[in-house]
Amino acid sequence: MRRWRSESGRPAALARLFAVLAGRLLRAVPLLLCISFLSFAVIQLSPGDSAEVAIRVNGMRPTPELLAETRARLGLDRPFLERYLHWLGQALQGNLGASHTDGKAVTGELAAALPPTLLLAGTAACIVLLCSVPAAMLSACGAGKLPDLLLRGLILLGTSVPAYWAGLLLIWLFAVHWDLLPLGGLDRPKC
């Protein structure tokens, strides 16, 4: 029993757990920096001009003077690394900036989208639990029999199909073909 305790009387396993968690958190910082840099680079280097999009969305015709003014206002005329470091500093303070098209704060837009996202994720988790627990019980009770083999085949098919393709097929089936669910928004089911 003595070997499981550290000198201070705390369990050694708890101390090891905190050491492992601290190590993983420290290793996550460079990874998160790399992900943020690559995401920023992909967005900034993607084809199209953010200034032109911002002008066209607001119903104006882009002129060279208006494009230069918009680029300066949005900070798009500064060097790439300077823009990234400015964005990173602001993001670490909780300021994700404003939308280039309508000028709304990104944090406000994310906060508005959070409740429907959580509702969707929670509903999906409930559906998965309601389907997977009985399926697992059926599969366990009849291991190697026809229901088990059919369930395994369905699971293999479900994991093999890309999520975006399955999503499009389910939208088509439930919203277009059967007209049971709305195509978008938070409307109630039609059934």
Rank of each mutant, 00 (worst) to 15 (best):
A51E: 01
S50G: 10
L157C: 12
T101F: 09
R3T: 11
R73C: 01
S46H: 08
L14Q: 12
C191L: 14
Q44H: 08
C34I: 05
V42G: 03
A175D: 11
V57G: 01
L38I: 06
L14D: 14
L33D: 14
P182V: 03
A135D: 06
L186A: 09
P189Q: 05
A111L: 11
L118M: 14
S132R: 05
T101D: 08
L157T: 04
L186T: 13
S46P: 02
H100C: 03
G48I: 10
G122Q: 11
N58V: 00
G94Q: 11
G103E: 09
M137I: 07
R16L: 14
K104W: 11
L186N: 14
G75D: 10
A68M: 06
L66Y: 04
R2E: 13
L74I: 00
P64M: 04
A121E: 15
P182E: 12
G9R: 15
T117M: 12
S6W: 15
G23H: 08
A125E: 14
R24Q: 12
L129N: 01
K190I: 00
I43S: 07
V133S: 03
I155P: 02
F40T: 00
A13N: 07
G9V: 13
P182W: 15
T70V: 03
S36V: 03
F40P: 00
L21M: 14
L32A: 05
C131G: 04
L17I: 03
I55H: 00
G153R: 12
R61D: 13
P147D: 09
H86T: 05
T159P: 01
M1V: 12
F80N: 02
D49F: 02
D148H: 15
V106Y: 12
P30K: 03
L181N: 04
A112C: 07
A28P: 05
